[in-house]
Amino acid sequence: MVGTQPLIWRRIPERYRLHGSKCLTCNAEFFPQRQFCPNCRRKGKLVKEHMPMDGTIYSYTYVHSAPEGFEYHVPYFMAIIELKNGVRLMSQLADSEPESVKINASVRMVFRRVHESEAEEAIAYGYKFKVVD
């Protein structure tokens, strides 16, 4: 699927370094990036902002039946992460043992291959989170 390359490329700032948005009018932060502040509407002024790399697990699920491209990852955790600035995002957990995955557990962003593709395709890298002590 050479057609996925533009999509991988467009998402690099977001996936590689958690590039989101901040509204200079109301100070709200958003991830992924937004063009428009839902609080301030036309009075909002959005600028690029790096999200913090640390947060906690807000909620999670243990995946045993994976979608295509993730078959070799099972079983794995998908979690909703609440970042230090309150922004929430969904992420796969890396290097995290079942006994350490708990609501409110501290997590930190890591850089990984996000999914498997065919041997000759471009590799999609991006964020995952891991539980830290």
């Binding site: 070799y72 990852h73 290097d95 850089f111 990984r112 890298y125």
Partner: peptide, 16 residues
């Protein structure tokens, strides 16, 4: 290295 790690991901982690 785990299935989702390679020399690029390890390089990024050490660089940060």
């Amino acid at each position: 290295a785990s299935f989702d790690e390679d020399s690029a991901t390890l390089a990024v982690e050490s660089a940060r």
